[in-house]
Nucleic acid binder design. Structure first.
Length: 555
RNA sequence: UGCCGGAUCGUCUAAUGGUAGGACAGCGGCCUUUGGAGCCGUAUGUGGAGGUUCGAAUCCUCCUCCGGCAGCCA
């Protein structure tokens, strides 16, 4: 049985191109982010798509910043994007490219278009342009400046570049067709005047190319073969093609695919920016965000994101992907690699009355049952331990396999204990359990034949260390918040739970960031890179384990 | 409403005129010192109506529904 690589319509196009030698056997893709925000999981799909194509067809992959709008772009975003793309494993080699480096060449191409009579300087204001653009059913009106002479256009365009005019006073427009059914062809704007500091070009320029004009040129200059973008640019393709055809220069093929949407979250940079700016979340890398940096901080691995990307595939139809696909990918990956440890989130003290008070045993624990090479560690056991509050119930429902008054349960890696007494405060709160243990039932002695229904995790009360643990839930209460104008009203108020006094087994003393642990029976966790320090440990829950008990309970 | 695009299990995605398949989610079972993992089994789908054909998810016609487009954003 061979592991077949999933195909998709883009791979079919490329394979056909390879067959017909359309690009001389080359495949060259690119990921062209605007540095105006942090990358999210939707970008990861695009990055991995583009990079995967280049890798599989022995081609090249460029990281190119589409930095044509100085008012929105910042170096901070450039840095974060480079880090995220690298972390995902998309190898752009030394090709970190910037559209702004092509500004001079773009300018010359514009002059070329003016000379060909295909572009003109327009004095209409923004309002004026909007008013003459027409509507869905009516054609637009031609600008009164549409028929200026080539000489006048050349002169005016040069003066635009030289900074003789204020913002918005003039634009350079392509002369196409004001009656086109496609708005993008109704004399689109190629350059606008923006007297603004550019993050890389400083004040060298005060005219900036628009997306449609710039993007094909960037692809052309870099020798891109397949320019892959999302569906909303489908209507722009005729313009992409028009510019390149008029110029008569190298002409890549634009191909559109459906962007990723995930349920229970939002996926637009604008909305994510708003969540950050208005402090609904704690920064772009808040672990509840769908950004790559947030997933990294939360404990997701690049492998899991790549696997997710393969699972969801690539197509042209709009989709709202179920978050369970992503959760499967991370569980599947972490199950194989995460070291198992024991941690008690909400501790309940248990005193084992027949266990010698001074005695401490070092019990053997498996580091990872899925990985034989991972070995063993020891865990201290003594007469005072903590168990999870939820692992004891005075009045249990049917099929509750954990500790109950008078009942027995196995302590993982240790003994079977029996609950003899429940100690309560005057207000009825359960303070402590008194139990007895059966010395014949120690794990691994071969004498543990006794069958008990439940096995629970625990930590030694005298050896455990303290930590704060952060539990995350979906950020929104409804599947598709973006579909509602009042999307902010659907934020889940319980998306973050901070648990202060969790108890961890002592081996976690030296836990480091970027290492994934499984807290047995609870989920996957990692040290938080932002709030954890040498004085206080803070863990993030990456994802829970599948929990059939919780599911049973719900229904 | 003009143009462009799309519609296959609950979700995502294959099948390119020849048995509608996979993954996730679900359900049932086995196993289990993680109610985890694993294993086995199972149900669920071609938007509608016509047509072409021995045979249609696939080709044709009409219809329905969904998405995108009227920034000097990308």
């Amino acid at each position: 049985m061979t592991e077949e690589k999933k195909t998709n319509f883009i791979r079919e196009i490329i394979e056909e191109d390879l067959k017909t030698n359309k690009w001389g056997g080359r495949v060259h893709t690119r990921f062209p982010p605007e540095p105006n925000g942090y990358l999210h999981i939707g970008h990861a799909k695009s990055i991995l798509l583009n990079y995967g194509l280049a890798r599989d067809y022995k081609g090249k992959f460029n990281l190119r910043f589409d930095d044509t709008n100085p008012e929105k772009e910042e170096q901070e975003y450039v840095d974060s994007i480079i880090e995220d793309v690298k972390w995902l494993g998309a190898d752009f080699e030394d090709r970190i490219l910037f559209a702004s480096d092509y500004f001079e060449q773009m300018y010359q191409y514009a002059v070329d278009l003016i000379n060909k009579g295909n572009a003109y300087v327009c004095d209409l204001s923004a309002d004026g342009i909007r008013e003459t653009r027409g509507t869905l059913t009516e054609p637009g009106k031609e600008s009164p400046y549409r028929n200026r002479s080539v000489e006048e256009n050349l002169n005016l365009f040069e003066r635009m570049r030289n900074g003789e005019f204020p913002n918005g006073a003039k634009t350079l427009r392509a002369k196409i067709d004001m009656a086109s059914a496609n708005f993008n062809l109704r004399d689109p704007i190629m350059y606008r005047i923006v007297h603004s500091e550019h993050h890389r070009q400083g004040s060298d320029w005060c005219i900036y190319p628009t997306y449609d004009w710039a993007h094909g040129l960037e692809d052309s200059i870099e020798g891109i073969t397949h320019s892959i973008c999302t569906l909303e640019f489908e209507n722009h393709r005729p313009l992409y093609d028009w510019y390149l055809n008029q110029l008569g220069i190298y002409h890549p093929q634009q191909i559109e695919f459906a962007r990723l949407n995930l349920n229970y979250t939002v996926m637009s940079k604008r909305k994510l920016l708003q969540l950050v700016k208005e402090s609904y979340v704690d920064g772009w890398d808040d672990p509840r965000m769908p950004t790559i940096s947030a997933y990294r901080r939360r404990g997701y691995t690049p492998e899991s994101i790549r696997s997710f990307s393969d699972i969801i595939g690539v197509a042209k139809r709009d989709a709202l992907t179920d978050i369970s696909l992503l959760e499967f990918a991370i569980r599947d990956d972490l199950n194989k690699r995460a070291q198992r440890v024991m941690a008690v989130l909400k501790p309940l003290k248990v005193v084992i009355t027949n266990y010698p008070e001074e005695k401490v045993e070092d019990l053997n624990a498996v580091n990872n049952p899925e990985d034989e090479k991972s070995g063993y560690r020891t865990i201290p056991f003594c007469s005072e331990i903590f168990i999870e509050q939820s692992d004891f119930m005075e009045d249990p429902p049917k099929k509750y396999f954990r500790l109950v008054p008078g009942g027995e349960v196995r302590l993982k890696y240790a003994y079977v204990i029996k609950c003899e007494e429940v100690i309560k405060s005057s207000s009825g709160e359960i303070l402590e359990l008194r139990c007895t243990y059966d010395p014949e039932t120690r794990s691994g002695t071969g004498t543990s034949a006794r069958k008990v229904k439940g096995t629970i995790h625990w930590v030694s009360a005298r050896h455990s260390i303290d930590a704060e643990v952060r539990l995350y839930d979906r950020l929104f209460n409804i599947e598709d918040p973006a579909a509602d104008d009042n999307w902010l009203e659907h934020i889940n108020p319980d998306s973050l739970e901070i648990v202060k006094n969790s108890k961890l087994e002592p081996s976690l003393k030296n836990a480091r960031t970027r290492v994934n642990y499984q807290f047995e029976r609870l989920g996957y966790f990692c040290v938080d890179s932002k709030y954890s320090n040498e004085h206080s440990l803070v863990f993030n829950r990456t994802v829970t384990l599948k929990d059939t008990w919780a599911k049973l309970n719900k229904s």
